[in-house]
Design a protein around this nucleic acid. Sequence first.
DNA 1: ACCTGAACACCGTTCAAGT
DNA 2: ACCTGAACACCGTTCAAGT
Lengths: 235, 235
Amino acid sequence: MTEPVHSTPRSTPDSPGRQPARTRRAPLTRDRLLAAAVAIVDTRGLAALTMRALAAAVDVQPMSLYHHVRNKDEILDLLVDAVFSEIELPTDDLSWRTALRLRTSSVREVLGRHRWAIGLLESRRNAGPATLQHHDAMLGIMRRGGFTVAGAAHAYSLLDSYAYGFALQEAMLPFDGPDELSDVAEGFAALVTESYPHLGEMLHEYVMQPGYSFGGEFEIGLEAVLDALERWRTA
Amino acid sequence: MTEPVHSTPRSTPDSPGRQPARTRRAPLTRDRLLAAAVAIVDTRGLAALTMRALAAAVDVQPMSLYHHVRNKDEILDLLVDAVFSEIELPTDDLSWRTALRLRTSSVREVLGRHRWAIGLLESRRNAGPATLQHHDAMLGIMRRGGFTVAGAAHAYSLLDSYAYGFALQEAMLPFDGPDELSDVAEGFAALVTESYPHLGEMLHEYVMQPGYSFGGEFEIGLEAVLDALERWRTA
DNA sequence: ACCTGAACACCGTTCAAGT
DNA sequence: ACCTGAACACCGTTCAAGT
């Protein structure tokens, strides 16, 4: 189909000055779509991200979205890539250990900021450019830090297993923050100590002690993992 | 297409007064519901688990399900608890290291057998009895193995982060098994080596070598993690 | 006690059409 | 080139009713 050549003048599509009150919408772009999707999902959760809700957020009819995106799955791919683009990549002047510590903490922080992200990872198989760029930079840090190729593979697998798994465990916690912890724990404690003695011990002697938060475990485990990586370096 | 009006003497179709040929259904139970749900999700994926599909699988109308289960969310909780019940818990006579190695391998194996499970964990906050029992037994193994209470907390957090994170990474792989790997990698290789040199190196010098499989990384990382746990034991 | 039909307020997506 | 309305084939769940 070719564009019909009709005689209406290109200028003044709607007579200027007599525009309707509604300001002319900025044309929809993938970036604006992605930003709106992130906003929805950060504030209202992954379940709230429907094509209809997203369309409303960018002030358009649902079907218009399909002009910028193949389908909903592609939006989810874009979301995951956006998350990877937020992870901070350390500068080259740092030691491998400092660099890996910084970026792994950044992974956890970003996954904490976008709590929907960890649940999305499992179903994504199309790595975006930010994701590939991220992995490449990480491998560079390791290779320069003296890891062999195979060693870097082992190290990266272990380090990311730790980062993702920790984020998953944080998402699984039956409370949202340290403040709610005691409520849950106390309602739990009686039942637990009876049927599950070791869980009860952990609860009373550790978890319910003042100052505890599961988040504190992250750095402890991370240092242990970083120690373990040493074995895969040659230099 | 209409019902065939059969005159076969096989059975009196629906003649009143006589019992219909259809054998009387076993009454629906939670266990039968759960088994049917696992079957659906194992064979057709999490998205195929709808209340309507589940109802059809147990030969009942959708609304009947709500007599045995509060809502779909409760079914998902049951699924996760069923997964935990499949994880093998080692006997008491083993060393802590052997015991933790066995059960962590079992976690990975079970999560591999039910590939939908890792994606479900993130959204579950109601631990079931099998889950609590599992955690209690694990803490018991550690305490008997000489871990302090705080040490057991550190160790369990690290060990499960590793197990879950590894399963998540396996689920994220852009191919389903080692056989498909080369197809993906080859289509990928040209693009990758150009824009992502370290990724390219990893691909050519390690991943695409004969005999590679990502799954092989599991044991390597697991031994490194088990080594790291030593620091939290007193005895 | 257990099961059901009809209905409600949603989904993602196709298709054909409008400018 | 970009947007739209109507429609289709689905969802989970409520309600009132059947045995």
